[in-house]
Design a protein around this nucleic acid. Structure first.
Length: 758
DNA sequence: CCGATCCAAGTTTTT
DNA sequence: CTTGGATCGG
């Protein structure tokens, strides 16, 4: 039998070799998900069940798509280039470029990234004379994207109040503006593509017949629109579609499903509801359930054997996630033995916490660990600072993930804006970005006049310039001539030379040469030329047999690439370094040793997510993801006080800590009894569905609280037992905020109230 | 047009 | 405490 299938466990084997039918694979953390996905594709190809052209592989990130292609290339001696494996957005971009006319887009349509989109919205509000206090651009952006991602055009949005009616109106205006300018934002790529497929029967038919197997990674992260898109492409989304007039029931036709008899694609969805941590940006875990029912999944395969972590780590993860409701259900196990206990360390302050972590890391390294196998995880980016400071002063090399990305840098975006104007002069966002950068004497007044004129002529800014008169006409006319000349000069040039030319013609190089701190920016601009060279080179490689090359001219494709793939996050490879990142960023990664830091109520779970059950459960999944990153050793650390927003705040340990069975943990500092951890968790006076805890209450001075401390349980003659939630002032004047449970929350003076420690 | 200064806000993030 | 945005003089 095929070597491909060697060393797969029974469940993996079952998944890989499933007959063509809708399949849902619940793949736990570290259970070999990517392996199953790629082996499945390789198996389909190797056994002749499918040709590369029959496969559609969908991921969320470019990284995941590349990973799939690389692994596939290693498994089979085939050319994977040109195969339709990519992100939702990348695939939609490809479809829209191939069918730009049917999609009513200009051939050179440009893609707005999140920042460009916000700028476009601000500009819209300005031209419409809308008060951006009443309609905050960010909120409007959220509104528009949310609706697009739910599949709603303005006409389909239900508006019950004047405010929303206005937002819908603005949504419509915004769409019109984008259409005029020939630009699409991220959600538009998907929605436009979805509409193309649903309205254009021949196009839809073509791809439905072509893609017999659709494989989806991280299915739990799909939003509504992505789900609908998959459904449509798979042939499950058309009530009107003429199915074969076979009298077979669904179940029977599935059994006979092969080749031409089958009139829908086999969707192979891999996901893990327990690792759904992107609901905040529109992901709908519910899609997994819907998929199961609407596609008629007959058998859900669970991959529960974990090849990554030791038993104690998995037990802790399982114990925590068991507190969530509405799970599809899954329990990770390993045959690796239980391993070391989970180490817990509680420090007085965030600085002490960081200092201790660094010492521990140095010990690990002395014991032979390599730095890159150690990760420091935190809930929010702001927490990295203290850790960095301590690592830095101890001289431990580290890398922080999550910084600015290459194509998001100011100088790069400026250069790209010039290039966008070459490709599509109607792109007003690009126009405004660089019309006066580098400065060429075009002020706000001139631009305003131009915008007014553009509005009355109903043309793009660029096209309006010839209609101008007076002083603005001269200055802006010169700018347009600059762009036109560049267009002429570069017409016949290869892409890298186009880029290089525009850097000089625009004056960008000169500008940054004159700037004191401009050296790095200049280097980045040169890097952009290299990126173009690399891109062109890559583009010219032959594609797999039977594949058509990607449509579109090189420049537009390069620009799309820049928008869709903003580049790696800052942490450039290089020397062996400790890895710092948010828990979100750590998803999909694994390390020998993991420190989860700031395990405090208010931080993790985040205070803005602890007050309702739905978001608290997402926080819990986040903790589950964090824990399951560790292979051998897991540390949970917390601090009693930390500097946040310039204020010292006090916190108590995370409720998630109390969900881990005692016997799995080893406390390196005394475990402080704070009156919870036992049965009584509801000491908040409110009737919330979620137990509320005292959170990071602000305090001013350092405290001398007569031996008491925040988080401590005390007894009051009248109010009974309560937990100290916060303190203000010090000495006998100190005021203490105490939560007495049923008696409510009280501020008491330390000097007056008779408090006894319990 | 540009720098200086003031003020408000402040999860998680990919495309 | 930081950062980004807006605003105000020169």
């Amino acid at each position: 039998m095929s070597r491909l299938l060697e060393n797969l466990n029974p469940e993996q084997l079952a998944a890989v070799t499933l007959p063509p039918q809708p399949a849902l694979i619940l793949a736990g953390a570290g259970s070999g998900k990517t392996r199953v996905l790629t082996t499945r594709i390789a198996w389909l190809l190797q056994t002749g069940q499918a040709t590369p052209a029959n496969i559609l592989g969908v991921t969320f990130t470019n990284k995941a798509a590349k990973e799939m292609l690389t692994r596939l290339g290693a498994m089979l001696p085939i050319n994977t280039r040109g195969m339709w494996i990519g992100t939702f957005h990348g695939l939609c971009n490809r479809l829209l470029r191939a069918h730009y006319r049917e999609a009513a887009l200009p051939q050179t349509f440009q893609i707005l990234d999140t920042t460009d989109q916000l700028a476009a919205i601000k500009r819209l509000l300005k031209t419409l004379n809308i008060d951006d206090e009443k309609f905050p651009p960010r909120e409007l952006q959220h509104f528009i994207n949310g609706n697009k991602e739910a599949g709603y055009r303005p006409a389909q949005v239900e508006a019950w109040d004047d405010y929303t009616r206005m937002r819908v109106e603005l949504y419509k205006e915004y769409d019109d503006q984008c259409q005029r300018e020939g630009v699409v934002d991220f959600p538009e790529l998907l929605l436009r593509c979805y509409e193309l497929l649903s309205r254009n029967e021949p196009v839809r038919r073509h791809y439905q017949l072509r893609f017999r197997h659709i494989l989806v990674d991280e299915f739990q992260d799909t939003n509504r629109l992505q789900y609908l898109w998959l459904k449509l492409l798979a042939g499950h989304g058309e009530p009107a579609r003429s199915h074969s007039p076979s009298p077979l029931t669904d179940e029977e036709s599935l059994e006979h499903a092969d080749g031409a008899a089958r009139n829908w694609a086999a969707v192979f969805a891999v996901g893990d509801d327990d690792q759904s941590i992107y609901a905040f940006r529109g992901a709908e875990v519910g899609n997994m359930r819907d998929f199961e029912h609407e596609f008629g999944v007959s058998r859900v395969i669970r991959l529960e054997q974990n090849y990554r972590s030791h038993g104690n780590i998995l037990d802790a993860a399982n114990a925590i996630i068991a507190n969530n409701s509405k799970r599809l259900g899954k329990n990770l196990w390993t045959d690796q033995g239980s391993g070391e206990p989970i180490r817990v360390y509680e420090a007085p302050t965030d600085i002490d916490e960081a200092r201790w972590i660094v010492e521990e890391i140095q010990q690990l390294i002395r014991d032979g660990a390599s730095r890159s196998d150690i990760a420091l995880l935190y809930r929010s980016n702001a927490q990295s600072r203290v850790l960095e400071q301590q690592l830095f002063s101890a001289g431990v090399p580290y890398k922080v993930y999550g910084g600015l990305r290459f194509f998001e840098r100011q100088e790069i975006k400026h250069a790209l804006a010039y290039l966008r104007l070459l490709a599509n002069p109607d792109d007003d966002t690009a126009f405004l970005r660089v019309v006066n950068f580098p400065t060429r004497g075009i002020g706000a007044r001139s631009v305003e006049q131009l915008q007014d004129a553009a509005r009355s002529f109903n043309t793009s800014l660029y096209a309006t310039v010839p209609h101008l008169s007076g002083k603005p006409a001269v200055a802006i006319g010169a700018f347009v001539r600059l762009v036109e000349e560049a267009r002429q000069t570069t017409r016949e040039l290869p892409l890298p030379e186009v880029v290089d030319h525009i850097l000089d013609a625009s004056g960008l190089r000169k500008h940054y040469q004159a700037e004191r701190e401009g050296q790095e920016r200049l280097e980045n601009l040169d890097e952009l030329v290299s990126a173009a060279r690399y891109f062109l080179n890559d583009m010219d490689q032959p594609v797999a047999e039977g594949e058509e090359p990607m449509p579109g001219d090189p420049l537009s494709r390069f620009l799309a690439h820049a928008s869709l793939e903003a580049g790696d996050h800052q942490a450039e490879a290089g020397q062996d370094a400790v890895q710092l990142m948010t828990v979100h960023a750590a998803k999909g990664l694994e390390f020998d040793a993991v420190f989860i830091t700031g395990v405090e109520d208010g931080l993790f779970p985040h205070e803005q997510s602890m007050n309702d059950l739905v978001s608290l459960e997402e926080e819990r999944r986040l903790m589950y993801v964090a824990i399951t990153r560790a292979r051998q050793r897991l540390y949970l650390t917390l601090a009693q006080s930390r500097m946040l927003h310039g204020q010292t705040r006090y916190a108590i340990r995370s409720r998630f800590l109390d969900e881990i069975p005692e016997e799995l943990m080893k406390w390196l500092t005394p475990r402080v009894q704070a009156g919870f951890g036992g049965g009584a968790r509801y000491y908040g006076g409110s009737q919330d569905a979620v137990p509320r805890s005292p959170v990071n209450a602000p305090v001013q001075k350092s405290r001398d609280l007569a031996g008491l401390r925040v988080g401590q349980l005390v007894r009051h003659a009248k109010f009974g037992e309560g937990v100290i939630v916060a303190a203000e002032g010090s000495g006998q004047d100190a005021k203490l905020q105490i939560n007495f449970g049923d008696a409510g929350m009280k501020w008491l003076l330390l000097g007056l109230a008779k408090l006894e420690p319990v």
